[in-house]
Design a protein around this nucleic acid. Structure first.
Lengths: 157, 157
DNA sequence: GCGGCCTAGATGATGCATCATCTACCTGGA
DNA sequence: TCCAGGTAGATGATGCATCATCTAGGCCGC
């Protein structure tokens, strides 16, 4: 490796501010969700995916693609959500290896109850703080970085 | 609460892209650090703070302010780092309640070894992807949101 | 129709994050 | 001087994230 190019002042500040902002924001969102509806942000995201799916049913690997989670994280998380009655696991007819995850009534009720407060908090703490231009740029930046992440394999990075 | 203002299309996309980008980016950074130097991102940040401190020593509450972590997270984390020999806990002369966290030689060696690869990865996966304007915008947005987070108490939010 | 390889998913171990709670010490006022 | 409240920090329990590994069924060429 050649000599390290350390971060200059502006890079340093931007990078640290970004990391810290995300950390604190997600902590707050988590706390609000947890306190008001007993769901974690992770639960919420799983439930959103299932709600958007026809019949409230998805194969775990579809869920995985939608969430971009690690497979084992998803599997463990589903186990916990199943234990709490938010989702159910069913057998899959088309593929003997597979499973189907189904939103339960309790799961549907939970997300319906949680959504307004969560959306409101996202607005108050984040979206309302940004101009429309800033929002567009943020999306642009996020998409660029995501493309970069997709493009680089684990090797070296 | 009044009727929920749901997210419009652009808000939805920007918000989700942002969340996903951060999640995947930090996962990659963590893996790289872990694989190449056996440190987590959290370890790294603690070590950075200590390295920047005079004499490699800080009170836990100073560390906490620098990192903006929860107190108990920090305490647990220090316990683990202490067990691995990266930091040491000492008694505090000025304040009988307090402690002092000191960077050990092993800790110093660990971060010196880890830094180049980490900085390089941050560049390759993130900074190099952004224009200078985008970087400035990101910092601006992060600071705005952080100010918002500071301004709102836990109550309601 | 069976050997190798792939994909779908579960699981045990371990480290991490958070919550609630606890101890010990400091500080200011009656 | 003593007690009330506040600050510094540690700790046990619990849920979460990741790694390595495992099972089982699908798929393909021979």
């Amino acid at each position: 490796m050649s000599a390290t190019r350390w971060l200059d002042d502006e890079e340093q500040r931007a990078w640290r501010a970004f990391i810290r902002m995300h950390g604190r924001l997600s902590a707050r969102l988590n706390r609000q969700l947890q306190a008001d509806s007993g769901l974690s942000l992770a639960d919420y995201e799983v439930l959103v995916q299932l709600t958007d799916a026809p019949d409230g049913r998805l194969r775990p690997f579809e869920l995985q693609r939608g969430l971009q989670w690690e497979q084992s994280r998803l599997s463990h998380h589903l186990t916990r959500m199943q234990r709490r009655g938010l989702v159910a696991r069913e057998e899959c007819d088309e593929d003997g290896r597979g499973a189907v995850v189904a939103l339960t009534d309790a799961g549907r009720r939970a997300i319906v109850a949680a959504a307004p407060g969560h959306v409101d908090t996202v607005r108050r703490l984040f979206l309302d703080e940004l101009t429309r231009d800033q929002l567009a740029m943020l999306r642009q930046v996020s998409d660029q970085v995501l493309a970069r992440l997709d493009a680089t394999t684990e090797a070296g990075g």
